[in-house]
Amino acid sequence: MTISFLLLAAITITGTAAAMSLKNAVHCILALTLGMVGLAALYLQLGAEFVGLTQILVYVGAVAILAVFAIMMTRSRTSETAAGSDPSRFSGLVTALLLFTVLAVAICTGISSQTLGGTPPEATVHAVGVALMQRFILPLEIIGVLLTAALIGAGMLAIEEKGEGR
């Protein structure tokens, strides 16, 4: 565990925790972009450069902007009301905490402490492109069809119907 990992993990956790706890929805999205940049840097540190760059492109570039536009269109910026002792919120927090405890215990006891993976593997953009065009060509085509269907479906859902009064 190196200093850079601890720093990036702290950035990621801070960003995502702020994204899930701030009141203003736009601030939440901005904090989410910070967490996603930290996650992309972790991918780069692990040697997966194409995935790290894709993460920045998709999450910081596309999903965050999409969410901000959705907030703008629904005017839900200040709709969240603070609730002190809501039982459903409390049980949600307890569920997440219990899940983290179970996962942490399983990780700490289940993995042997032997040293693994000395040299970082090579996953250059070139190697990823060759693999995408040879071994993974069918999933690539299917994901293209899925994205086209999602594009058309999202447009159809969000478009305003005729005769629907505002």
Partner: peptide, 24 residues
């Protein structure tokens, strides 16, 4: 702690944060 467990712990924490957000 080996590096793999550190990454898995970070991932577990991210998942719990996301679950807490989705539930609350």
């Amino acid at each position: 702690m080996n590096p793999l467990s550190a990454y898995l712990l970070l991932s577990a924490m991210l998942f719990s944060l996301g679950l807490a957000g989705a539930l609350t």
